[in-house]
Write a protein that binds this DNA or RNA. Structure first.
Lengths: 155, 155
DNA sequence: CATATCTATGCATGAAGCTGTATACTTCAC
DNA sequence: GTGAAGTATACAGCTTCATGCATAGATATG
């Protein structure tokens, strides 16, 4: 049972149950054959971006925001994705081209889209290449430097 | 300097140099500021699927096959991608729907496309969902079982 | 065939990631 | 304010992954 799989199950449980506490969630996971402690669950909820919202009954329950915009990527997460998956960064005018191993462009594009990075306007991802548009205030070179730095490819 | 980044550099070096030996490659990498031993390079070349081909001069040089078809995914690699990134597997008729963490569908689809798995016809990948078409000999259920097993989600 | 060169790999080690335990910290109810 | 309940996190330990060292195995050359 990998961590991703457990977190997916947590997301599913929160969608179909009113969960008031982490210990309750530990039990619901256990009912599905997933063993985890409160500590692990606390960390998972944090990574999933779960928050407590007021339910119709007035109590606080856990929920994960649905809109992609609300699932913004933390700097830490972005740095991790970039350092794992970005292998080269090239500039052309207001464009930054990022190379990845085969099949991994979309992971990078997705993380960038959710990062709300300054100077970043948008991406187009292929199989192993992401084309990124920078705004004029920072320019392609400035954004490339930022991305390369996060990816650990200082030049 | 992550492993992916070093392997990308190796691929680039092989494209623009005639590399006869791994010790030569170690030196060329060192010229680019990448420190690695012959042992590491041997493993990298294996993972990159590099082979030795006869050059115009009659000597053997390293090259990486260019066509995606030739970069077929090993069972080991496929298993690893699936266990890391597949969080749920659902069947519908001749379709198998695979769920992944946000942004990771394409990695999974790409690995499946390159795996040449029996009974597998093709994929369509979104952000966190891959739709897979199975052929009738194995059916959606059969293929789902296979994928779930590789992903470590036996049910 | 013998030897030099090249390549692959067993083993040990260190780093990174993840998890549980214990407990510090925070929040809630009375 | 106090105590109970809930949540976060420091620390230790385990697992996995990647790498180098040393050398076994494979290949090329004379």
């Amino acid at each position: 049972m990998a961590k991703n799989q457990r977190q997916y199950k947590i997301a599913k449980i929160l969608q179909s149950n009113s969960v008031y506490s982490q210990s309750q969630l530990v039990e619901l996971l256990s009912d599905e054959g997933v063993v985890a402690t409160q500590a692990t669950v606390s960390r998972d909820l944090d990574e999933l971006g779960a928050i407590k919202v007021k339910s119709a009954g007035g109590q606080s329950i856990y929920a994960i925001p649905e809109l992609p915009k609300d699932q913004s990527s933390t700097q830490e997460h972005l740095k991790r994705v970039l350092s794992d998956w970005v292998v080269d960064v090239v500039v052309s005018s207001v464009f930054v081209m990022v190379r990845t191993p085969p099949g991994c462009a979309h992971v990078v594009a997705s993380a960038l889209d959710r990062s709300q990075m300054d100077g970043f306007l948008g991406t187009v991802a292929g199989d192993d290449t992401v084309l990124i548009l920078a705004d004029e205030s920072i320019g392609g070179a400035g954004l490339a430097q930022k991305i390369a730095s996060l990816a650990g490819i200082d030049q």
